[in-house]
């Protein structure tokens, strides 16, 4: 098992009442899985994804990645994990405007390592079809191009799992198809993929489909 959650719970307090964004969640991801998580807005999908990426602290339960419990890691440990085993794509345009496309792709690597990675970054940009944009500023990119850069960035550290939060949420149908195809290519190269997406965008090659409702996760 590559990634597994056991009784994972995360709650928030809202107007004096406890609200469970994730309740006793059990999720399992094998290294060859392409997992889609769907659900209505506010059902807890993004919270779950961010718990998996070590961006949020769980109230209780465990998240095991390659047998290592993320809930027991400190900030530096989690950051190191995000910079190596996990490739994360946040919602919307997540590129840093102060840096070129190429630097955005290199950034996760340089946050934790000192060796040069520009050649690999160029290769990744070529793989996602935007090698010619490496010197551009993110502000000049279209939504689809920005998403491709984010995908290239998430792959720079050769992660074992790619986690994407609504990567096609604000894209037109054609660009959505391109991005989904890109995820399938990543998956084909041996990277497990966990994607929060809309029902209508579930690709045919999905290996597991989970539905989130009021913090409860169910396998379809």
């Amino acid at each position: 098992m590559l990634l597994e959650t056991i009784d994972l719970t995360k709650s928030y307090e809202r107007r004096g009442e406890r609200f469970y964004a994730a309740y006793n969640v059990a999720l399992s991801v094998e290294s060859d899985d392409f997992v889609c998580i769907t659900g209505q807005s506010g059902s807890g999908k993004s919270t779950l994804l961010n718990l998996l990426a070590g961006l949020l602290h769980a109230d209780s339960g465990s998240i095991l990645l390659d047998g290592e419990d993320l809930c027991k890691l400190n900030d530096a440990g989690l950051a190191a994990l995000r910079g190596s085993k996990i490739g994360y794509i946040p919602q919307g345009n997540s590129l840093l405007q102060n840096f070129s496309v190429l630097d955005n792709v290199c950034l996760p690597w340089y946050l934790t390592r000192k060796s040069n990675v520009r050649a690999q970054a160029r290769e990744l940009l070529a793989r996602v079809g935007i090698a010619h944009l490496e010197r551009e500023n993110p502000a000049s990119l279209s939504g689809g191009e920005a998403r491709r850069v984010a995908i290239a960035r998430s792959l720079i550290a050769n992660p074992s799992v790619l986690i994407a939060d609504e990567p096609t949420g604000d894209l037109d149908p054609k660009t959505t198809d391109d991005i989904i195809r890109m995820f399938s290519e990543v998956h084909a190269q041996g990277v497990a993929v966990v994607v929060v997406t809309h029902e209508r965008e579930i690709p045919s090659f999905t290996t597991k489909h989970y539905v989130m409702e009021n913090g409860h996760l169910a396998l379809q």
């Binding site: 961006l55 900030d75 950051a79 950034l107 996760p108 946050l111």
Partner: peptide, 15 residues
């Protein structure tokens, strides 16, 4: 948001 993204791609709090 910028700092959140940096955290999400591997920056520590110290960074």
């Amino acid at each position: 948001r910028e700092f959140g993204i940096l955290r999400a791609i591997g920056a520590t709090r110290r960074k």
